[in-house]
Computed example of a mutant assay.
Amino acid sequence: MNNALNLKLAKLKEILLSLESVLVAYSGGVDSSFLAKVAFDTLGEKSLAVTAASETYPERELDEAIITVKTIGINHLVIHSDELTDPNFRRNPQDRCYYCKSELFSKLTALRSEKGFGFVIDGANMDDLQDYRPGSKAKEEQGVRSPLQEAGMTKEDIRILSKEFGLPTWNKPSLACLSSRLPYGEEITVEKLNIIDHAETVLREFGFKELRVRYHQEIARVELPRQDFVKLTETVIDEIVSRLKGLGFTYVTLDLQGLRSGSMNEVLK
């Protein structure tokens, strides 16, 4: 570990110690797993990881999160978030994430108060400041802290340290909720989320680890890293097309720009 990374890690621990007790918003992704690990190592029983399960969060991710949190050792709770009951969220406006995070953080702050913890913390890092993140407003309103950002940690820093700590998430692809696969303005429904989830499961069965299936009504727009295009043999393509059409899509397309986080935000630029 280089000196700069050592300093960031020391700063992170210093921040956590100053908070005294924390409830970690834990999704099982790279960032929140790392944060849960350092929080537990620093604060022990004064830390609690909480995962919010919902229709926008794939069940396989919840299963993996539960396995990972057991290796960390931190106490863990699973609650249910109800963002789909909010018509503002279902409308899928450009600030959709604000309504989702408002629902999540209101539940977590209530739980924090009930359990007697000092702060709710999340896994936002420095790289997140470069993207469109309307959920940040909800975080500020609820007084949620982002220690990784406060310590100046980037996603790359977190992956390096996660690997050194032996976390299985160190090379895990970045996560995004299933609602991010829908264009803004396309109503979010459980049926659509299930179709997207099943479509992405099909791609994973063919060995693709990093992927998105973007939902454009009758069109499935598949995003894969460009280096994975070579895996799309004629047989694989035919099977994927057949199975995605079986889910209700009329057309199955490959996005030649490749996989990129937040591609639905490109319409905002």
Rank of each mutant, 00 (worst) to 15 (best):
D86K: 11
N125I: 07
N88L: 12
L35K: 02
L43C: 09
S106Y: 08
S106D: 15
Q149E: 11
Y99L: 05
S33G: 07
A39V: 07
P147K: 12
L111E: 04
A53T: 00
E59C: 10
S146H: 01
K155H: 07
M153K: 00
I74A: 10
T56H: 05
M126V: 15
L108P: 02
D63Y: 12
I121A: 01
T56Y: 02
R91L: 11
N92C: 09
P134W: 06
V144Y: 00
S47E: 05
D122E: 13
C100D: 05
I66P: 00
L48D: 00
S54V: 09
L62K: 14
D41I: 07
S54M: 09
P147M: 08
S54I: 09
K115F: 11
L84A: 10
A124I: 04
E140A: 12
S32T: 13
G44V: 04
M126P: 00
G118Q: 07
L84R: 09
V120N: 03
E59N: 14
R60F: 15
V69G: 03
Y98M: 07
P58A: 13
E114Y: 13
T109Q: 14
L77G: 03
I121L: 02
K101V: 07
D41S: 11
S47A: 15
G116L: 12
N92I: 09
E114A: 14
L108G: 04
D131G: 04
S81G: 15
R145G: 01
T56V: 15
Q94D: 02
D131V: 02
E103C: 12
R133M: 04
D86W: 10
A110E: 14
P134T: 04
V38N: 00
A110Q: 14
S146D: 06
K155Q: 09
L111R: 06
L35T: 02
T154K: 05
T85V: 14
G44W: 01
A138D: 03
V78M: 13
N125H: 11
N92T: 13
V50L: 10
R96L: 07
